[in-house]
């Protein structure tokens, strides 16, 4: 018999070692997330997956599942905070969706849609970070980076290349390229690298394929991210497949 915890009143089974996020997704319960990716060690930095356990809060992607926990996630108190986090990310970067190749396939945008974010609310910062178009096949637009470190993790843990890193602290924190020149052309990144497919926003782009899918056929045009994320989540023996 499996151990279970309660998530928004539903019973969620889990296997030893699973996090709250892993068990929830496997059992067909969506918790909003941005820096979490099922294939990587959790980062716990975006805080969108924050849930409430009694009087305290925790990032569900890093929190180990425990029997008997009573967890709240889909409540207005948390969704309002999630909305604010998404708004701050929109205001901090340059997320001008109409000109972005990632539009329709962007996790940040899809989260905004799902949380009914109608405006960034805050004063836009309009960052001015130079693009890196040095690589013949890959373009980097640093103005859209949300510092999730998924490319850092993919390039280091899967590709074994460590092409990307974050540098700086606080508001000056930024994505850098690991080469003597600081340019992507002087790294050994390849189009087949895992780092090429994990960027949730429009920073790492393959050149000359933008806007190939028409509006209406893109990843989040058909289904909201809350439905799509459940399809993408790996099933575990303990997680009953959701309908």
């Amino acid at each position: 018999m499996n151990d279970t915890f309660q998530l928004d009143g539903a019973s969620v089974p889990f296997a030893p070692g699973q996090t709250v996020m892993q068990a929830a997704l496997a059992a067909g319960h969506y918790i909003p997330h941005l820096c979490y990716h099922p294939e990587f060690k959790p980062h716990g930095s975006c805080k969108l997956c924050t849930v409430k356990i009694g009087n305290h809060t925790a990032a569900s992607c890093t929190m180990p599942a425990e029997a008997g926990l009573e967890i709240e996630s889909d409540i207005e108190e948390l969704n309002a905070l999630r909305r604010t986090l998404v708004q701050m990310l929109f205001a901090e970067g340059n997320h001008f969706c109409p000109s972005c190749e990632k539009s329709g396939n962007c996790v940040l945008q899809a989260l905004g849609y799902d949380l009914e974010v109608h405006t960034a609310g805050f004063r836009h910062m309009y960052p001015d970070r130079p693009l890196d178009a040095s690589h013949p096949e890959i373009l980097l637009d640093f103005n859209r980076c949300v510092l999730c470190e998924l490319c850092v993790r993919a390039s280091g843990e899967v590709d074994g290349k460590s092409v990307f890193a974050l540098a700086g602290r606080g508001i000056t924190k930024h994505l850098i390229v690991n080469s003597a020149s600081g340019l992507l052309k002087d790294t050994n990144i390849a189009l087949t690298d895992k780092a090429m497919e994990v960027c949730p926003v429009g920073v790492i782009l393959k050149k000359r394929v933008g806007f190939s899918k028409p509006i209406g056929e893109r990843r989040y045009d058909q289904r909201p991210i809350s439905a799509q994320a459940l399809d993408d989540a790996p099933r575990t023996p303990t997680g009953a497949k959701h309908e």
């Binding site: 929109f90 997320h95 001008f96 969706c97 109409p98 000109s99 109608h118 405006t119 960034a120 836009h124 309009y126 960052p127 001015d128």
Partner: peptide, 18 residues
Amino acid sequence: ISIGACAVTGGLPAQRNH
């Protein structure tokens, strides 16, 4: 009511802001 990307975010004209 702000309607559309330009009213809501500054939009295309705001791409001159830097």
